[in-house]
Design a binder for these strands. Structure first.
Lengths: 119, 119
DNA sequence: CGATGACATCGATAACTGTCAATATCGACG
DNA sequence: CGTCGATATTGACAGTTATCGATGTCATCG
């Protein structure tokens, strides 16, 4: 049984917070949102996220992602795992290859939480 | 009312990136954006940012911020410094008190970069 | 001037993070 | 079955970070 992370991931709880500038975030809310930002707060992971999210079909193969960086394969695998465990990337194994898919609604929610100022 | 930090801060360069999901972020872009996210990627700093941004007048006194946390004064001062150096908070000393003001346009740009999916 | 109070800086420490080489896992294929 | 190629995991190491107590700075007030 592949552990597909059906547990509560941080990403599930972000949608319920009003924007930063609207009212003070509670400690609980902050504790939920911070891991998501932490997962994104790395140049390599930002590029990985962007590569996957902007890729045709909304998904990308690890084999392609590895080539985009001057880093070792385990390092890329580690960063993908971080993004996956934060709930920002979905993981699917097809044959020998593994495909990651961006959870765009997670990005949308995060963007709204951070950037929205009026509603 | 001297403007501290008129130097280039990371926040100045975020507006020029198209959203994550639009096209792959370049390494340079990622290197510019990541520090901003890193500054926000901490529960205490998220709450600080939210407290200041949502405060009446758009600014808040350190004396008020300290009381909102169960942390030492140097620790809060440290987190405020991180947010300030990232370009997310402006700092102004008035008499004995120091006021921090949120750079809402920075938050808006960040939010757009992360969350925008269509344009 | 000396005291007080608000905030910043310093120095230390424990915990966390990014990276790699080595190794494991696991499908596909002959 | 045995090999190969694609990813993941492990273990180790260097660099970073969150936190605190102690101390410094600086404006205000008596």
């Amino acid at each position: 049984m592949s552990k597909s992370l059906t547990l509560l991931s941080p990403v599930d709880t972000v949608a319920c917070c009003s924007p930063l500038s609207r009212q003070p975030l509670s400690q609980q809310q902050a504790d939920q949102v911070a891991p998501l930002l932490k997962a994104l707060a790395d140049p390599v992971r930002l590029r990985l996220m962007s590569l996957v999210a902007s890729h045709v079909g909304g998904e990308a193969c690890v084999c392609d992602l590895n080539d985009a960086f001057d880093l070792s394969q385990p390092t890329i695998s580690h960063h993908l795992k971080v993004l996956h465990e934060a709930g920002l990337l979905d993981r699917e194994k097809r044959g020998v290859w593994v495909y990651y898919r961006a959870r765009t609604e997670a990005l949308t929610n995060l963007g709204t939480l951070i950037g929205e100022t009026s509603a």
